[in-house]
């Protein structure tokens, strides 16, 4: 769908992107992660052809990115804004027509969206008469009204209350199910694991990590398990097939230990070792969350 190859973007005094390459597959929900000022917005602006890279190329469906692709992309910028004094209905239609829709078609689709999101009464209202959350909702509709193949959302959930954030999240997923590819940038990790198929992590103008969420998390597996058992506290003499990293005593004879497998052993070996000695309540592999990976990676570079 989108292939970004060796993008370099230099601003006076600092480098926003150095040699960044990414692949976004059709139908994916792709998360662009990174701390503030990492270069996410610069990259998004390049994909939207708002600015051009100093070097490198972007391919859209196998073609080099050009003006004809503009109508296939929907963009919700981080800094939201609409014409304050213009009526919402008229404004949405204007924005959709700029993306190549006819007036009649834009009106028809807008009615459907307004019904769906409970905005029927807003048509004749001006933006300045709406609350901030309502403005965001209107802007989201403006972003997707022309049914783009690629929807780019810069920090889509900022400014939404939890209820509306949930509504917007569901809409994003529904659009994705209908075939739209979603690319969104965020620094909020909770939403990533929930939504994204793939991610790329950008820090200080460089891509430091990318791949599927599952793949990345698996690659960060380090044979660590969490075990909860019931009974007398066990003591280990070194003959066990693992190494204890952390030990925690709970109430009512409940104990939790965090272990790391010794070379050549599996979780089954651990169970075989423990079962004769105590009652195992739980054994769970510890896979680092995206949040932990994010923080670890960002700190590593620093």
């Amino acid at each position: 769908m989108l292939s970004i190859r060796n993008i370099v973007k230099q601003y006076a005094g600092h480098r926003a992107l150095s040699d960044v390459s990414l692949e976004v597959k059709s139908g994916q929900v792709f998360g662009l992660l990174g701390p503030n000022g990492a270069g996410k917005t610069s990259l998004i602006r390049i994909i939207n052809q708002i600015t051009a890279p100093d070097s490198g190329e972007v391919y859209f469906n196998g073609e080099k990115l050009n003006q004809s692709h503009i109508d296939r992309i929907g963009y919700l910028p981080e800094e939201r804004g609409l014409y304050k004094k213009m009526e919402i209905g008229e404004q949405m239609i204007y924005l959709a027509r700029l993306k190549g829709l006819s007036r009649a078609e834009a009106t028809r689709r807008l009615k459907i969206w307004f019904d769906k999101l409970g905005m029927e009464t807003w048509w004749k209202m001006k933006i300045e008469e709406l609350s901030k959350g309502m403005q965001q909702k209107a802007q989201f509709v403006a972003t997707v009204l022309h049914e783009p193949d690629l929807i780019i959302l810069d920090e889509p959930f900022s400014g939404f209350d939890p209820v509306n954030a949930e509504i917007i999240k569901d809409e994003i997923l529904e659009l994705n199910k209908k075939g739209a590819t979603i690319l969104f940038s965020t620094h909020r990790m909770e939403s990533v694991e929930e939504l994204c198929d793939s991610i790329a992590l950008i820090n200080k103008s460089q891509k430091i990590l990318d791949g599927t969420v599952k793949g990345i998390r698996n690659s960060y597996r380090n044979a660590t398990y969490l075990i909860e058992y019931n009974g007398e506290q066990l003591s280990f003499n070194g003959s066990q097939p693992f190494e204890v990293i952390e030990e925690k005593a709970g109430d009512d004879m409940e104990h939790t230990i965090k272990i790391k497998l010794a070379e050549g052993n599996t979780s089954n070996d651990v169970l075989q070792y423990l079962i004769p000695k105590t009652r195992v309540n739980m054994l769970q592999e510890v896979i680092p969350s995206m949040n932990e990976i994010f923080i670890e990676q960002v700190n590593l570079i620093r």
Binding site: E79, G81, Q139
Partner: peptide, 16 residues
């Protein structure tokens, strides 16, 4: 200035 301060500029120039 209105387009710039209201930030709609970014939406518009992603279209034109």
């Amino acid at each position: 200035i209105e387009e710039k301060t209201s930030r709609i500029i970014e939406v518009i120039i992603s279209s034109v």
